[in-house]
Design a protein around this nucleic acid. Structure first.
Length: 266
DNA sequence: ATGGTTGCTTGGCAA
């Protein structure tokens, strides 16, 4: 069972890359963020043609938007409102697999703007509130013996080696203590496993995003690990592989995020 | 310190 999460930054513009990815990596479940597409324009038929018959998505014009595309049936499809906004950042579904069901949550946490100051920047306040609410919500609704997978663009790089320079990014939104502390709290509250760090040693740099604003993303390599896959304890022993498809950052008209793969052996 | 690029949409915001 292979799950891929990818912030696609416009699904309509990048359908050719989605096709390329599915041919190359053949995910059973593909979770997309920043689809930037209202539901009536979502490329349902094109994705079905790629083998993703089972789809759950919520989008809006220009911003945000999340999608779960699956080769397996999806049950109990849910759409969640976070901090009072219907802004297409959290959907979930149960995946029916022959060796057991699990619930997949696809998350797009707000980026939070530029200024890491809740008084001066509403977007940063929204981001912190979003994580607070969602963290409490998961803890209230579930227990750590349930089979959950949470994926998506969390817009937070939690650890020192999740960014190119810990020191230089401590006051940059995505790596500030108010954000990383909150994410650590959420991780601990349901005993989630951060799958990337289950496979990649904590002292090894690993990124999933490189800004468009660098002349040469590979040469400067100023990346951050913003995209995540978390699993609850019952799924931990089923983890078999983790990979980041860094080469896709060099595809023509790339997303600024690259796909993250997690494989399960059931 | 500042500016750098992209997508959606055609002015300016969000990332």
């Amino acid at each position: 069972m292979r799950i891929i999460t990818w912030n696609i930054n416009s699904v309509r513009l990048r359908m050719p890359l989605v096709k390329k990815l599915t041919e190359e990596a053949a995910p059973d479940i593909l979770c997309l963020q920043e689809t930037k597409t209202p539901d009536e324009h979502f490329p349902v038929d094109d994705l079905r043609a790629l083998g993703y018959e089972h789809q759950h998505f919520q989008g809006m014009k220009s911003y945000n938007g999340v999608a779960i595309l699956s080769k397996y049936p999806l049950e109990s499809k849910e759409i969640y409102t976070r901090v009072g906004r219907e802004d297409c950042r959290h959907i979930a579904a149960r995946v029916a697999h022959e060796l057991g069901k699990f619930e997949v949550h696809n998350l797009y946490i707000p980026a939070g703007g530029d200024e890491p100051d809740v008084a001066a920047n509403d977007k940063f306040a929204h981001k912190l509130d979003f994580v607070d609410e969602m963290s409490a919500w998961f803890k209230d609704r579930y227990s750590d013996d349930q089979r959950l997978v949470a994926v998506g663009d969390f817009n937070i790089a939690p650890y020192e080696h999740d960014v190119w320079s810990h020191k230089q990014l401590l006051k940059v939104v995505s790596h500030t203590p108010p954000e990383t502390d909150r994410l650590a709290g959420m991780l601990a509250s349901l005993n989630w496993t951060d799958v990337a760090r289950h496979f990649v040693p904590e002292d090894e740099k690993t990124y999933t995003w490189w800004s468009y604003r660098n002349r040469d993303w590979k040469k400067s390599n100023r990346g951050r690990r913003l995209d995540h896959v978390w699993v609850t304890p019952p799924l931990k022993d089923n983890l078999s592989a983790y990979d980041v498809l860094t080469h896709t950052r060099d595809w023509e008209k790339p997303s600024d995020h690259v796909p993250v793969i997690v494989d399960f052996q059931f």
